[in-house]
Amino acid sequence: MRYTTHYESPLGLMLLAGDGEFLSGLWFVGQKYFAAGLCGEPLVNDELPAFAAARAWLDDYFAGRRPASAGLPLAPAGSSFRRAVWDLLREIPYGETTTYGELARQLAARLGRSAMSAQAVGGAVGHNPLTLIVPCHRVVGADGSLTGYAGGIERKRQLLGLEGVDMAGFYLPSQGTAL
């Protein structure tokens, strides 16, 4: 069985999804790939423990308290490649950024390969079903562009600002796939 509930964040309404025990999705309503993988008509249930834990985490995050996601009951659905990328995303510290190329280098090293496509990594980052908790907003272009966030570039800018990231070296692209 699949369940959903909503969370009203300072950056807009969010949808949480899960199976009753684990959180499998967290999206800004209307974002790119919104509710991807959520099949059928889920039941609304505001009282599930996984949702309560996620709401508490979100409350702490938006209050600037740097919550740890290690204790959250997470179960994102995806290929082994995507899950490996999402695991790397969870290692990006609060208030810091990395690039798609750096993630590709790290993943290649973990998999014992000489190289990995930054574009393939970017595709996995973009399909992250647990926005914020799996911090895909902390990934930027190698040239300093704030690109590639399914929740929208303006939200990405606001999230990085909330985390205290020095925005001086970044810019908003004038065109791209995630504007």
Rank of each mutant, 00 (worst) to 15 (best):
D46S: 04
A17N: 07
V139F: 10
G152V: 12
S79Y: 05
L26H: 04
F51G: 12
F28R: 13
E154Q: 11
L43H: 08
A56K: 09
A120K: 10
L58V: 02
G126Q: 15
V29Q: 04
A115Y: 15
A150N: 12
Y33A: 04
K156R: 09
P10C: 00
E163P: 09
A150K: 11
E154P: 01
A70L: 07
S117Q: 11
Y61R: 11
T177C: 13
Y94G: 07
A52M: 08
R90D: 04
A52T: 08
G126K: 11
G141P: 07
S117W: 14
G25R: 07
S9K: 04
G25E: 01
L162D: 10
L107N: 01
R66S: 04
E21D: 00
A150L: 13
I133H: 07
H127M: 12
A17K: 11
A17S: 12
G148T: 03
L58G: 04
G152Y: 13
A84T: 02
E8I: 05
G144S: 01
W27D: 08
Q31Y: 08
L159W: 08
Q31P: 00
C136T: 10
E102G: 05
D166C: 07
R105E: 07
S174D: 07
H127N: 15
Y149G: 09
H6G: 03
R55A: 05
L16C: 01
S114W: 02
W86C: 09
L146P: 15
T177L: 14
G40N: 03
A115N: 15
L162N: 10
T5H: 06
R82S: 14
N45L: 05
M167C: 12
G30Q: 04
Q119W: 13
L132N: 10
E8Y: 00
S145A: 14
S145P: 01
A115S: 15
R90S: 15
G25N: 01
P73W: 00
A118S: 14
A52F: 02
E102D: 14
V165R: 09
V125R: 13
G101T: 13
M14Y: 12
A115Q: 15
E8G: 04
R110I: 08
A108L: 06
I153W: 11
G126P: 03
S145Y: 05
A50L: 04
L162R: 07
F62M: 09
M116E: 14
G12S: 05
G141Y: 13
G122L: 11
G37N: 01
E47A: 11
L89E: 12
R155Q: 13
G169K: 07
P67A: 05
N45M: 11
S69D: 03
V85M: 01
D19L: 04
Q119H: 10
C136F: 02
P73L: 03
